[in-house]
Amino acid sequence: MSPIIEALNLSFRYAGEERWAIKSINLKIYPGELVLITGPSGCGKTTLCRCFNGLIPHFYEGELEGILIVDGLSIVENKTCKLAQRVGMVFQNLENQLIMLSVEDEIAFGLENLNLPRDTIKERINEVLSILGIEHLRYKSPYELSGGEQQKVAIAACLAMKPKILVLDEPTAHLDPLSSKVLFDILSSIRKRLNLTIILVEHRLDMVASIVDKVIVMDKGQIILQGGPREVFTTPIIKAIGIGIPKLILLYEDLLLNNLKLDFPPLNINEAELLLRKLLSR
């Protein structure tokens, strides 16, 4: 299988800044993967996200080096509005991405831009409203909604454009733990149903560790680790960066120091319970 996103030595420096926001990024993301990008604030996660749908280099000015191919299109030659059908982007700020006066119009906005016929627009609105379970919000104003609801509307508005890739930049930054859990449940269910590739920038690693396929850890604009979650979270250098390592991984390592070895690092409560029972019965 060929990668749906491939970066080769990708670097970007914002206009007027000396520091490279991202430097020599190499990565391959395959269709259907759920990839977590994490790292301390200012490590270049958001900058990398902006590259995926061509906001860099078309919206943000600066110096771009290297190659980034997204679903067969180079970001240099294709503007954001063209990439929008392939890459849906959900931003950190909930309210500033909802620009219309009702949820229905919000979802229609992208489709109207694509000049789709009215019937198709109506069909797609019904479809995404039911996928996200928000039919009751149809005629509400974005400012009447709670954070979690606004997030769902933002995702619905992206999904309506039928992208292959969905990028979410710190989607839970303004959500409470319960809404965050609901969001992650939705993401893991729609990825299979819609065959989506999802790129998730997140700090709450405890909540996402068990649903992601691949973890990319960034620091100072560079990728310092990438691989499966069990492998990445147990790599020693990760402790020096300042990201919230999942508590179950810390438990695993604590036990290891005391010569109690679980079969593999657990990523969710069920796994941990199973492994601990096994250990106790030994």
Binding site: K79, A84, G88, N96, L111, E112, N113, M161
Partner: peptide, 18 residues
């Protein structure tokens, strides 16, 4: 503006209406 471009604003001169 960033969010609008990400939703294909400016894709074509023509647009349809819901």
């Amino acid at each position: 503006a960033e969010a609008m471009e990400s939703r294909a604003f400016g894709y074509s001169n023509k647009r349809s209406y819901l």
